[in-house]
């Protein structure tokens, strides 16, 4: 961790994430207006009262901007956690058991690789409706498959190690071997995976919101704000560019942090991530 912070790019990334997190948490106290209150002044230009102006319904854009990352970040981090926990256990179990179980898990991973992420969520949303829990589960499952792939690959290498064999020869149970011998040795990998998965989840959630398939109005959300403001790009560019900048800097921060962490731990982020 300390080694990661010594890299300027990683430090910048960490800083961006922390700033966004602090703002998101503090939004209810620092936002000048409630994000959903209609202020009877639609499309005000940016000024002293409304720093970024108001949107077409007369809501304060700056307040909405401060609030706009909360739900997306919640979904992203929750999905990242689901992905890393589920993916690590599934991947390591596949590496431990191999055989038929491994085959089934790998087919699942391949299946996910074949369905574009947005379509995957669309299937879920069509079936189960558009809500935050559905989003977390759908996005979490998508990201999980990547974690399964990397932790399975790492687990297969670990299974050849002497200490795992010694544990097997002593008759330790599968669960003990996975938790005691394998999991601690993929902790580094999982830290990087979490950062990568959360950033990828955030990208996905904001894209979904932009399409109208993610977070639903009137919840303040950057993706939704961009979509709402698109038509006003010419007259009120701040309405679109401010949330766009927020999403981009947050994802960039997460990716820089992930890369720095991977670099410091001697892992390869470019190979592990993506997809």
């Amino acid at each position: 961790m300390r080694a990661a912070l010594r890299r300027p790019a990683a430090l910048l990334g960490g800083l961006l994430v922390v700033v966004h997190l602090v703002v998101a948490i503090a939004a209810p106290w620092i936002a000048p207006f409630a994000p959903t209150s209609l202020l009877d002044a639609p499309l005000e230009p940016p000024g002293a009262t409304y720093w970024l102006g108001t949107d077409d319904l007369g809501r304060d854009a700056f307040s909405r901007l401060l609030w706009g990352g909360r739900v997306a970040m919640l979904v992203a981090f929750a999905a990242g956690a689901v992905a890393v926990l589920g993916g690590a256990l599934l991947g390591l179990a596949a590496a431990y058991r191999r055989g038929g179980f491994d085959d089934v898990v790998m087919r699942l991973v391949e299946m996910k690789l074949a369905v574009p992420t947005i379509l995957f969520v669309a299937i879920f949303v069509t079936g189960f409706g558009q809500s935050v829990p559905v989003l977390i589960v759908a996005v979490g499952i998508i990201q999980m498959m990547g974690v399964v792939r990397t932790s399975r690959a790492a687990g297969i290498v670990l299974m050849e190690q002497g200490y795992v064999r010694a544990a097997q020869l002593n008759g330790e149970s599968g669960l003990i071997i996975i938790l005691r011998e394998l999991l601690p040795n993929v902790a580094d990998l999982l830290a990087v995976e979490f950062a990568l998965r959360a950033s990828s989840a955030l990208l996905l959630v904001s894209a979904l919101s932009f399409l109208g398939l993610g977070i639903s109005p009137p919840t303040p959300d950057w993706g939704l704000m961009v979509e709402d403001g698109m038509a006003l790009l010419e007259s009120e560019p701040a309405l679109v560019l401010a949330p766009a900048l927020c999403i981009s800097t947050l994802v960039l921060g997460m990716n820089l942090a992930a890369e720095g962490l991977a670099d410091a731990l001697g892992l390869d982020a470019a190979r592990g991530g993506g997809g």
Partner: peptide, 27 residues
């Protein structure tokens, strides 16, 4: 090993080639 009795497992032990990889680096 999993099919053997606990006593059989105790009575047969093994030491591996690579000393570093035969110990869990995180323990």
């Amino acid at each position: 090993a999993a099919q053997r009795t606990r006593e059989q497992r105790r009575r047969i032990q093994m030491v591996f080639q690579d000393p570093l990889s035969s110990l869990n680096p995180r323990r």
